[in-house]
């Protein structure tokens, strides 16, 4: 377990960077793409912490269905904030 501890500490930094970008970005399409990247890294973190069932649920809902719903909503409304 000790050999992956460094990875478990480093990955949240990238996730925090993604979250800050999502918060300040004015273009909603870019925000959705970066949010998908953050969801991907979050699932990777769950996997490193040995919770593969949570990672699988994150893959199914957080990655595919959430992105689909956000993209359809942006198409129905406006792209720029």
């Amino acid at each position: 377990m000790t050999d992956v501890t460094a990875l478990i500490i480093i990955l949240p930094l990238a996730m925090i960077a993604c979250a800050v970008f999502v918060a300040i970005c004015r273009d909603l399409l870019y925000a959705v793409v970066v949010l998908a990247v953050m969801s991907l890294l979050l699932a990777f973190q769950f996997y490193l912490l040995k919770a593969p069932d949570v990672a699988m649920a994150e893959a199914g809902v957080g990655a595919a269905v959430t992105t689909a719903i956000f993209i359809i909503s942006i198409r129905a409304t406006e792209r720029k904030e």
Partner: peptide, 28 residues
């Protein structure tokens, strides 16, 4: 690396589902 063979299922799920994500953004 973890020697938990059953963890590979998550990789298959990701390989299949990331395709849908790419298609949605491309269609937009």
């Amino acid at each position: 690396m973890f020697d938990h063979v059953i963890f590979v299922d998550v990789a298959i799920v990701y390989a299949l589902l990331s395709f849908a994500m790419t298609l949605y953004v491309a269609k937009y």
